[in-house]
């Protein structure tokens, strides 16, 4: 599937961060971009939309990216959605936990469109 036909869901509690990720995704030709400001909002969106890719921040209040990942993976209708975890260099250590929870891949902030593209190639079938 071409990027422009895919629906991607950005999950981050920080509005500016969502805007930035959106901008970078646009640079990669993504057109259908949804945003959620926390895990539970993301789960709600997942119920009513067909999502082809989730780009989620790790560190969020209430429901962390990891909790979201686990929730996504434990639901039959969402368990195969590619899940890219956005993390920070300092919190990279924790990524093993996400790997165990079957994250598709992860990306360290800040990143460029090129880096994101590299990660996407690995996890999104085109």
């Amino acid at each position: 599937m071409a990027y422009k036909d895919m629906t991607v869901l950005i999950v981050d509690d920080f509005l500016t961060m969502r805007r930035i990720v959106r901008k970078i995704l646009r640079d990669l030709d993504f057109e259908n971009i949804l945003e959620a400001e926390d895990g539970s909002a993301a789960l709600d969106l997942l119920k009513v939309n067909k999502i082809d890719l989730i780009v989620s921040d790790w560190n969020m209040p209430r429901m962390t990216g990891l909790d979201l990942l686990k929730a996504v993976r434990s639901n039959d209708s969402t368990k195969d959605i590619p899940f890219l975890m956005v993390t920070a260099e300092a919190q990279k250590e924790n990524i093993v936990e996400a790997v165990k929870a079957r994250v598709s891949n992860y990306i360290v902030k800040p990143f460029t469109a090129a880096t994101l593209e590299e990660k996407l190639v690995k996890i999104v079938p085109r």
Binding site: D13, F14, M17, I20, N59, P61, K109, P110
Partner: peptide
């Protein structure tokens, strides 16, 4: 709760 904003601010500032 204190950690998170610094984390977010740092993240965006990096970009």
């Amino acid at each position: 709760a204190v950690f998170r904003p610094f984390h977010s601010i740092k993240g965006v500032a990096g970009f």
